[in-house]
């Protein structure tokens, strides 16, 4: 047999070696783990969203000027306001962007000492008066 033919035969024998059959148990294990991973990811994402919302709300409560902001929707937060309540300057711009992206429409309810009707009247006044 020629050398090349021998190599071809050898190649064929190597190719024909018995292979491991993919098991359904392994498939099931993989699918289960991937579903778990997906669920974990979603929970992490939800927790992150909740944390941002909570932080946004807390930050909004701590900000000065809620009297003037009341009725403006959404309230636009200036990074200087954040710096004013102790947020480091380097973080303030980033936080302002996050807070403004969350578009919180009103100040925290417990900072509002007036009645809803009064607040509503103020808003009408602001809209009418410009």
């Amino acid at each position: 047999m020629k050398r090349d033919e021998e190599l071809e035969v050898l190649e064929a024998r190597l190719s024909a070696r018995e292979r491991i059959m993919p098991s359904s148990a392994l498939r099931q294990r993989i699918v289960l783990d991937l579903e778990r991973a997906r669920l974990r990811e979603r929970l992490t994402w939800l927790a992150a969203c909740a944390a941002v919302l909570l932080a946004t709300f807390a930050m909004r409560c701590a900000l000065p000027g809620s009297e003037a902001d009341r009725g403006r929707s959404p309230v636009v937060i200036d990074e200087r306001e954040l710096a004013g309540i102790g947020v480091p300057a380097v973080e303030a711009a980033r936080w302002a962007a996050v807070l403004n992206a969350a578009r919180i429409p009103i100040a925290a309810p417990w900072t509002d000492t007036r009645s809803n009707a009064s607040a509503s009247g103020d808003r009408k006044h602001e809209r009418g008066g410009g």
Binding site: R27, I30, V31, L34, E35, A37, R38, E41
Partner: peptide, 8 residues
């Protein structure tokens, strides 16, 4: 989207 059936 990470759908398990696609990986299956």
């Amino acid at each position: 989207e990470g759908r398990a059936e696609a990986f299956a």
